[in-house]
Amino acid sequence: MINRLIATALPLLPKRFVWLFSRAYIAGESVNDAMTACRSLNANGIKTTIDILGEFIQNLDEAKKNRDEYMALIDISQLSGIDGNYSVKPTMFGLLIDTEACFGYIREIVSKAAGYGNFIRIDMEDSGCVDLELDLFRRLKAEFPENVGLVVQAYLHRTLDDLKGLMDLHTPALPLNFRLCKGIYTEPAHIAFQRHDEINVHFLEDLEFMFQNGVYPGIATHDRALVDGALRLIDRYDVPRNRYEFQMLYGVAPELRRTIVEAGHTMRVYVPYGRHWFGYSTRRLKENPKIVTSIIKSLLLSR
Rank of each mutant, 00 (worst) to 15 (best):
G28N: 10
V130R: 01
I52A: 07
S298K: 13
T293P: 14
A37S: 10
E262G: 09
A63V: 09
N118Y: 06
E198L: 09
R138T: 09
I2R: 08
D98E: 04
G229C: 03
D61K: 01
K15F: 07
G279N: 10
D228F: 14
L140C: 06
V148Y: 05
D238Q: 15
P188S: 01
E29W: 08
N288T: 15
P217D: 01
E108F: 00
A24Q: 14
C181P: 13
G45P: 07
D135S: 01
E287H: 07
Y250K: 00
I234T: 02
D197P: 00
L207W: 05
K182A: 09
A24W: 12
R195W: 12
A27F: 07
S30G: 10
F246G: 05
G214S: 02
I2C: 14
N32G: 07
N200M: 08
L136E: 03
P14N: 10
T186C: 15
R195L: 14
P217Q: 02
L169A: 04
T282Y: 05
L95N: 07
L204C: 14
Y237K: 12
F246I: 04
I199R: 02
L134C: 04
C181V: 14
L41C: 11
I52F: 06
R107T: 05
L204F: 10
A101W: 12
H276D: 15
K47I: 01
R4N: 14
R139M: 08
E62F: 03
R139Q: 09
D223H: 07
L249H: 00
M267G: 13
E255C: 04
L150E: 05
L12D: 06
A24R: 13
K286L: 11
A154N: 10
D161T: 11
I295D: 01
D61S: 03
T91R: 03
L134P: 00
T36N: 14
R232M: 06
V261C: 15
E100Q: 15
N42C: 07
D131C: 01
S80C: 12
I122G: 09
S30E: 09
R283Y: 04
H265F: 15
R4G: 13
R284N: 11
G128Y: 06
I122D: 01
A142V: 05
H157M: 14
G28Q: 09
F144C: 13
V271G: 05
D33H: 11
S294E: 02
N42W: 11
T293E: 07
T159Y: 03
K290T: 10
M92C: 04
G229A: 08
D162W: 00
E255S: 10
D235H: 15
D123E: 02
A37I: 04
Y116I: 04
Y86G: 00
Y216E: 08
D83L: 11
L176F: 13
T186V: 15
L207Q: 11
R179T: 08
R158I: 09
V110A: 00
E143M: 01
E143S: 12
A7N: 01
Y244G: 07
L140H: 06
M124F: 02
L5G: 10
G94M: 13
A192G: 11
A27Y: 12
T266Q: 02
E146I: 11
D51Y: 06
H276Q: 12
S80L: 08
S40F: 15
E100I: 02
H170D: 08
R268H: 15
G218M: 08
N200E: 15
L96S: 13
P175N: 02
K89N: 05
